[in-house]
Nucleic acid binder design. Sequence first.
DNA 1: CTATGGCACGGATT
DNA 2: AATCCGTGCCATAG
Length: 466
Amino acid sequence: MFQHLPVHTIRPLTTAHLAQTMTLLSLTSGELQQQIEAELASNPALELVDEIRCPTCRRLLRNGGVCPVCSRPSLKSEDDPIVFVSTRDVVSGFGDVEEKDDYEDTGSASTEDLATYVFRQVAPDVSVEDRGIAAFLLTHLDEDGLLTVSLEEVAAYLHVPLTRVFGVQKIIQRADPLGVGSCSTTEALLVQVDVLRESRHVPENLERVIRDGMDYLSRRQYHELAKSLGMADEAVRECARFIAENLNPFPGRSSWGDIREPSGPQTQIFYRPDIIISRLTGEPDSQLVVEILFPLWGTLRVNPLFKQAIRQAEDENKESMKEDLERASLFIKCLQQRNHTMQRLMAQIATLQRDFILYGEKYLRPITRAYLAKVLGVHESTISRAVANKSVQLPNRKIIPLADFFDRSLSARMVLKEIIHQEARPLSDSELVQLLAERGYEVARRTVAKYRAMEGILPANLRRTG
DNA sequence: CTATGGCACGGATT
DNA sequence: AATCCGTGCCATAG
């Protein structure tokens, strides 16, 4: 939005400038909006004019954040593999943000996101009095998406009847990810079966196998399980296969496949991204379009009338007005700097991680923040701040944290998953180390074990035979 | 003896 | 300065 101002006018002058730029850099677009609004309200020298220009061609844009000239495929002929578009925030207003803040407890970042995501879904289905229960349950999920408290405890703690808690839990369990908010993996699986049954065939006695056989199942002792249930071996195996392919005992884990067929694009919006990356055309060598979302509509500038007013002002007011003017122009400079930095950062990321963006997690290249800092000529803490707490929407409509671009192990984990998925017999961790090394991933045996745990893959002696 | 999980250390990240 | 992650060493299970 501010890119139409020449970039070379940006230079850090004072420590105040630097400090403020740092702060702004670490804000998400939502927080940025609050910051800007506060500044607008408190500083008469600052002005928001209702016009916006295309950052690339400086055309005045009338109705919409996308430039009709630059965003068209006609730009395809250019060499630059990346197109930048700076858009206003098109996803939504901020009406629902306060709601979220009310209910959220402090928790780890990952569960917070899951909790918020689920809460959004269930809020309309839960009566207002019961929303507190929903919020309480959702703030007591572990990273697997299972409850860390018993329903009885919740009922006692909130002084409500157990049946109400139970009712709320039922609603939550049916939200995406299916089975979230269950008390145990068994319960989560049962919920998933229940829902799946509506749309497709499930093996006979599946519920029984799950309810009574989790111990056996996790050890792959199908024969023993079959005996204890009085079922045929093959029937039990069929159930086990169905579970492995269609169900997820840990609803909170993101590893549940990339595609969720039944859900439309809407349900995939975890939270609003700060950056959207899409492809300009459908072709494989298409340019990438990087949109850095900006939460305001219009252009921010120093009010020229205010400048004039200073000259005519009386002496005692002059000082404070000058101060305001200073603050305003500093603020704008900092915003420019922020956008400039974000843009350069994303340019690097989009170039380096092109394969990841287009073709999936397997192709993520391990990039460190320190390296990018060096390339961009900024301090590494700058990168840290810029990356923290921000999210990106990829062309496949998945929204991921910006920090994922720096995950050193994601790629290795994906390859590991793939190897294990295709293995003919359960491979031991040391053998997996070998196979990973052959594909260029040098990791320690111990680390393979950790990756397995992260992906929820059982150790070799408990895995199913091919 | 082999395969794994727990604990702790060192480097990177924040 | 505090925290996270990969890794080495050791105890334990089979």
